[in-house]
Each structure stands twice: as structure tokens, then as C-alpha cells.
Design a protein around this nucleic acid. Structure first.
Lengths: 352, 352
DNA sequence: CTGTTAGCGCCTTCAG
DNA sequence: CTGAAGGCGCTAACAG
């Protein structure tokens, strides 16, 4: 036996037309019971177990699944807590619609691979870090609905972003309200060149990662409005993990020994800063106040618990998925953020 | 404009045959540069951005993606650490092959939904809980390669299981060696009826989930061998999440106030037990020793760090995925488990 | 109810 | 190198 049996074989063997055979499986009520049974009988004896979705697909045009394009490779994706929270939101919406989720890695260049070019899906959700992301271009080529996350991609795509600038501003305003005047910023990476350390104004102007850019802008806006010269505030770039944060925090504390407040662009960096400060005998928040960003679960359990800016990653996933399914829904959403005040911030110490 | 432009339209507009147009995109070297450029030019002006994978699929027959059938719904899947680890293994293999991953929810009943019947994939990995799983039957109908995880499905399917019974026995033997004699078991669910709470012998006899059944058998084997009447050991069934675990742990502690050792069938349940014990002023391991199962990452970071049975879930994922891609690979594998002793277990407190 | 017909979009022969 | 033709498996539309 060469070929897998298909619907036409069954139809022929049962002496009915292909259309009728199709109905036996897709719309059984339309077929007279005796005919139906004969066809089913023949199908069984031929080892045919129902129509192949591949054929149906071409006809129907819809896959009933959406593709989620992940940065980096698939196995990193499953190890990343943000992706996970995001996917919970996406999955919730897909569950409700009976849709599937296909994971698409961004690293594939070869068109033989399963990638944005070749994935069988009805639409894409693309997580990006830069406005001009190559992935957006690829997704656009597919002419399928797609939504970008954390980046605005233009009129043809939906987008879900969170109010990074506003969140950063709130963090800075909180510290200003506590009387702080001498700040330092521990920044996420600005672009993909792997550079870390003190970032001067020229370096900051090259920022391509939107989250970094917007949070920086938010800090600047608040401090400038309070009459502080932002160019005099040291900004240190660090890799967003515990080690990178410790290195960055050390650089920061040495560059700005008189600072009383640190604005950290992520909780991971903020927690590393607290650790480094304590190692050097600085009390948090007694000598140094620290504000983070993200509100990861660890933020509530640290010592002291971290004041931070909370964003709902799950909600981001929900909105993104909904945009794919509801073409009528709003195309661009900005999710609010909120400042969560815990105990890593306190009034500025009195100058002596 | 009614229809999306397709390859045939481009070919016609460019005055070449469809075959040539196809080659322009799939095998550019085969086509004379001047012709190629003209076709590309026409394609651009028509807004055609390359062949649609849907058409290719039917011809090629391969999707280049595997389906992972998850128990329960998709959003639960992303919240479960065990699934996450498993997927890291699967993803690693898929990355290496340039294959994609499609998530298929098991709950779908409607054939219009994306389910095992309709997913566009080249093979399935099915995580099951019961031998006679309905999912296995559905997967078999698709006539695609499939492998079952945690269950042996028969000759036509591969399978990857781990030595649950042996692992459970080791956990119990460890506690016995520490001198414990008064045990309690916090069990995973026994079947799909949603029931939780104390499970008597009759209830236990109805167990359909293989992991639950085998671990229970392992505990029983070890305790019985040590002369302990397993029927007198309270067994509480709980949902495998933080809330369910807390409820179950509370029930357990109340049902067996004198127990010195808890055998928990998952780390999630074990961690919940530790939390609940501490909330009630019981010291772990001073008053109560707790052993988990799985060795999820959180187990090493808990307070106290959890003694548990490690199974390499990542490896399970790797093996399962490899079986799909390599029809020649061994079809049935049993992965070993190992006891990881940390600090949630200690010698039994002296009876007073 | 049932049969016929005509594609869905593409790729791959096989001739030229 | 290029063109013509057939078919991958199925279903919707339309006649009987």
C-alpha cells in the first residue's frame, strides 16, 4: 500500500460520491443513516479515520491558531518568568475561543524552518524590544493580523504597550515627594551591543530599546520638572540579572557616593542594588532609597520589601490575544501602571 | 479587489508560467536574473510577498511542527512549573531541528476547535494521566507519530515514563531511616472527579491517574515493609496548586496531628504543606519532616530547602521530542529518579 | 438526500 | 533554463 487512504478512496469503495462521503464525517445528519453506516463501515475497513486537516485547511483558509513569536529560542522562552506570565494571558483568551497557540522562534533564518514566514497560523503576536524590529517586517509580509507588544508598529498592526514613561515618572515623583534631591539611575541596557557601565548623554541618545528609552524619559521629565539637572544625574547601564545588577550597583554607588535615591529600571536591578548597598554598610532606606520596576513576586518578599512600579503582564497577554481575534477591538492600548509603595523608600536623610 | 493575490496572478502579470514564478521564490538560482527581477518587480507591485504556507503544506505534507497536548487548559499549562520544565526539554530538541511547537488543549470537545483532531502538526506528544486516556485514542486516530508521557500506550506509540513507584518508595525509606513512624500522605488527585480531602481505602482503589497510583503504591510498599499499617496512614487528596495544597495540608494536619512526617506527591504540595505547618507554629523539620516530588526549581530555594524526589523533567521532554523526530529511536524509555536530600527532613522528634 | 464540479495555492514532474 | 499539466485532500455550491 503506497498512499494513505483518503476520502476519495472511501467514497469510491462505498459507491458514493466524494461529497456524500465528506458529509458523513462533517455533517452526519445530512446523510441517510443506512448510507452513512455503509460509508463508516467501509472507512473502518480501509483504516480511514476521518478527514485530514491539511486538506480542510486549504479549503477553509483558517487554521484556528495564533502564533506567538518569541525573542530568542524556544527553550529560553520557557525559562523566562515574564514570557510565562504573558502567555497565561494569551492562553486564557485562546482557551475561551477554542484556538490553539503555535510558538514561533525568532532566531530561524532558514525558510525550511518553522518561522514567521512559514508558520501555519491566523495571526501573530510579536514581542519586540525595538521599534524597527526585523520581526515586525517579517510579520507584516505575511499579511496576517498581527499585534506588537511593547512597541508601536504602525497603522497596520495592533499594539499593546504599557505606560513606561508614566510609570518611571511616578517612581521619580515618589522620591521627590520624600524630599530626595540627589539621584542616580540604574538602567536596563540601551541597545543590543552588550555595553554596560556609566552612560553619558551621547550614549543615552543611541537608546534603541523602547522600555529603556521611555523609562529614562519618565525619570528625566519628573526630575527636570523639580528643577534638577538630569545631565548631572549619573546613569549606569547594567545587564538585567543578579550579577549584572551587582556590578552596575557598585559602579553607581562609586560614581554617586552622595546620592540618596536610586531609580532602578527593573526589580532585578533594584534588588541587586539593595544587596550591594547593604554589603557596603549603607542602610536601605535609611541612607539610600531604592525604587524598582515590574513588581515581580520577589519584590514583596525582599528585605526591605521593594517599592516598585507594577505592570500587569498577564493583562498584556490578554489584550494582545483579543486584538488578534477581534478586528473591531481597539488597535492600540496603553496599559496603566501603578506605584506600589513598600519599605525600600523613606524620606531623604537630613544633610549635615 | 476580491481575492488575495497569489502566485498564479503574479506569474500571469509577469508573463511567465506559474512554475517559473514558484522557482523565483523557492529556488532563485534556477531562474535567469533578468526574469527573476521582472517577476519580483511585478510581485512587489501586486503586493505579493511570497508563497502562502497553506498551499505549500498540502503539497509537502509536512508542517514542521509538533503538537504538545496539554492536560487541562492552556492557561493552567503556563502556570505549572512541571509543564514548563518539560517544555524546555521539548523546545531544546525542536530548536535544534528548526521545528515549531503547537500547544493543543485537551479540553476541546467541539471539532471546530483546535484540538487533537484538527491540529496541523507532524506528530503529537501527549501528556496523560490515565492508561485508558481518551486523548490516546484521539491521537491514534490521527495516524501520526505520537508519544505518550507518563503512560504506556501500546505498540503503536512511543512512551516516556519515570519510575514513580521507585521514587516514592525511596522518599518513604528516607523518612523511615530517620526514625519516623507516624506518616501522612498529601496526594495528587486520584481521578478526574474534582474530589479532594481525606481518601479512604475505597476511594484509593478507584485511582485512575497513573502517577498518583504508582506513587501511592511506592509509599505503601516501603511503609508496609517497615511494619507500618498503611491503611492507618491518612491520605488527603488535593488539587496540585498553591491554594489546593494549603487546603489539603490543613486537612492533613488536623487529621493527623501526631504525624511527624508528610509524604507529598509533588513539590507544589510539599511547599504548601511547609507553609501551612509554619503558619500553625510547627517547625519544619523540627516538628514535621516533609518530602516532595519533582524537584522543581523552587524546591531548592524554599525555607527550609525541600527534600524531594528528582526526576529530570527536562530530559523527559527531550526524549519525548526525539522520539517524534527519530522513528528509529527506542520507543519506550523509563527514566530513573533520585532522592535529593535537603533540609526539610530530619530525624523524628523523640516521643515524649 | 445525493452526485457533480470546481477550486483552495502551491510544487513538481516531464517535455521543450 | 522555461512552460504546461496534474494533483496534494477536502468542501461548498449547485444540480438533480
Amino acid at each position: 500500500m503506497k498512499r494513505r487512504t483518503r476520502l476519495a478512496d472511501v467514497a469510491e469503495a462505498a459507491g458514493v460520491s466524494q461529497g456524500t462521503a465528506s458529509n458523513v464525517f462533517a455533517k452526519p445528519d445530512l446523510v441517510r443513516p443506512e448510507v452513512r453506516e455503509r460509508v463508516e463501515e467501509v472507512a473502518r475497513s480501509l483504516g480511514y479515520h476521518g478527514p485530514d486537516p491539511k486538506g480542510r485547511l486549504l479549503r477553509a483558509g483558517r487554521v484556528n491558531a495564533i502564533g506567538v513569536v518569541v525573542m530568542g529560542d524556544l527553550s529560553y522562552f520557557f525559562s523566562d518568568p515574564f514570557s510565562r506570565a504573558f502567555m497565561m494571558g494569551v492562553a486564557e483568551v485562546c482557551d475561551a475561543r477554542g484556538a490553539g497557540i503555535a510558538l514561533v522562534s525568532a532566531v530561524s533564518r532558514d525558510s525550511a524552518n518553522w518561522g514567521i514566514d512559514s508558520a501555519l497560523v491566523d495571526g501573530f503576536i510579536v514581542q519586540c524590544q525595538e521599534d524597527s524590529d526585523r520581526l515586525i517586517e517579517l510579520a507584516r509580509r505575511r499579511r496576517l493580523p498581527f499585534v506588537t507588544v511593547d512597541v508601536e508598529a504602525g497603522a497596520d498592526a495592533g499594539s499593546v504597550v504599557s505606560d513606561d514613561r508614566g510609570g518611571a515618572r511616578q517612581a521619580a515623583e515618589h522620591l521627590l515627594a520624600l524630599g530626595h534631591r540627589r539621584f542616580a539611575v540604574l538602567s536596563l541596557e540601551m541597545t543590543s551591543d552588550g555595553r554596560t557601565g556609566l552612560a553619558d548623554r551621547a550614549r543615552r541618545a543611541t537608546t534603541r530599546y523602547t522600555a529603556t528609552r521611555d523609562r529614562l524619559a519618565g525619570y528625566e521629565e519628573a526630575l527636570t520638572a523639580a528643577g534638577i539637572d538630569f545631565d548631572a544625574v549619573p546613569v549606569v547601564e547594567a545587564e538585567n540579572n543578579a550579577e549584572g545588577g551587582a556590578v552596575g550597583a557598585a559602579t553607581l554607588i562609586e560614581a554617586a557616593p552622595r546620592a540618596t535615591a536610586v531609580l532602578a529600571m527593573s526589580d532585578v536591578l533594584a534588588l541587586a542594588t539593595i544587596g550591594e548597598a547593604q554589603r557596603r554598610g549603607l542602610a536601605v532606606p535609611g541612607d539610600l532609597s531604592v525604587v524598582g520596576y515590574d513588581d515581580i513576586p520577589e519584590a514583596a518578599r525582599s528585605d526591605p520589601p521593594l517599592t516598585t512600579v507594577a505592570q500587569s503582564v498577564i493583562e498584556k497577554g490578554r489584550r494582545a490575544a483579543r486584538m488578534i481575534f477581534d478586528p473591531a477591538a481597539s488597535r492600540h492600548e496603553t496599559l496603566p501602571v501603578s506605584l506600589v509603595v513598600r519599605r525600600s523608600t523613606a524620606p531623604a536623610p537630613q544633610p549635615r
